[in-house]
Design a protein around this nucleic acid. Structure first.
Lengths: 197, 197
DNA sequence: CATTTTACGATGCGGGTGCATTGTAATCGC
DNA sequence: GCGATTACAATGCACCCGCATCGTAAAATG
């Protein structure tokens, strides 16, 4: 075996370049040549690490998901279900430059999932996990007496998730400020929880 | 002046073809040639009625918005604020083939608005109108004693809108059935309103 | 009837696309 | 040292893109 290189590191290098382009100019602007240029490598190298453009796009998304997932996991030591839910949701919203960038990319992939089957499959698999997680927290809060017992954790979780997703675009195009977004989330949590802890 | 033709009818013919392609294969699949073929006309004719592709895309969107707007207006004679809000929101969700198609197109345009300024402008203008409408209904319901007086109509309207928007993708990729979607909306309205009328 | 204006249809151009092919330098096992 | 394998770089190909250009048929106007 020749020329020892870190295969995964190269793939991440390329995927990062792709995500920068997607954030800046949209998924439409992502081409093999553009990605190669952004990463500062040759087009041949991009092709060497990804057989097709679709594979590259999928890998970049898993890369992005992993990045976000780590941050959410970092909030898991929150002192209460409410604090954790708040942190987890705000992590998905475009409140600063980093998350704004991620939201732009995420929205592009979301739209693409409508016509790209493998992408839809991935989201279909991820959704129950995320919503289930929210539901679990709400259920835990109910047992702690922090949420009314007669609320449906499953549906409340769906509403929480969909509200967050729906907030993305109004925030991105500037209709809602970061403060508006945070206030809306807190307002909703105030209605869901009995205590502010 | 020669050859009497209905200018607007031709533009609608072309825009309808564009929307069919966008619904079927996404906005990426929309090209002058493809639109011309779908409409059964020559590419020269498409160019005759739209100077640029962007103008064509924008016109098609206003066409779509008008179509949806008419349906929402048709629900305005609902017997109560709650009934109207329910109808207006369900009108935006992919509960049948027609609205499923519209949702697919709408999501594609929504994602595009992140990188297309004129599109973002259009949405930025439309948002206050839609949300304001919801807020008005909630305020009216408060005066009728059908909604708790200490709720914020503006924020409740934002949550209502964002929840609806967030429901679109899970519904489109099949994570939520049409029944799930309707049940989620009704659940949320049950929490918002004091009466089920 | 002539002129002008509109409504197209056909074609071409420069540029970008994903992907295949080819060549080559480097490093391993032997 | 040597064949084999890996890691690229360079180039080419067939196709598609938006848009401009050119030609022409038809109808209203004088």
């Amino acid at each position: 075996m020749p020329k020892i290189v870190d295969h995964e590191a190269r793939r991440r290098l390329i995927a990062d370049a792709l995500l920068r382009i997607a954030s800046r100019d949209g998924l439409d602007a992502v081409s093999l040549r553009e990605v190669a240029a952004e990463a500062g490598v040759s087009m041949g190298m991009v092709q060497h690490y990804f057989a097709t453009k679709d594979q590259m796009l999928m890998f970049a998304l898993t890369q992005l998901n992993a990045r976000i997932g780590e941050r959410v996991a970092g909030a898991m030591d929150a002192p209460s279900p409410r604090a954790f839910l708040r942190a987890a949701i705000l992590e998905l919203l475009p409140l600063d430059d980093e998350r704004r960038s991620e939201s732009r990319i995420g929205l592009a992939y979301l739209a693409r999932s409508v016509v790209a089957d493998e992408l839809a499959d991935l989201l279909r698999q991820a959704l129950p996990y995320v919503i289930g997680f929210y539901a679990e927290q709400i259920r835990a809060a109910q047992e702690l007496g922090q949420v009314h017992a007669d609320l449906d954790p499953r549906i409340e979780a769906v509403i929480l998730y969909t509200m967050a997703q729906g907030l993305v675009n109004p925030a991105l195009i500037g209709h809602l400020s970061p403060e508006d977004v945070a206030a809306t989330v807190d307002y909703h949590l105030d209605r869901l929880f009995l205590t502010s802890g």
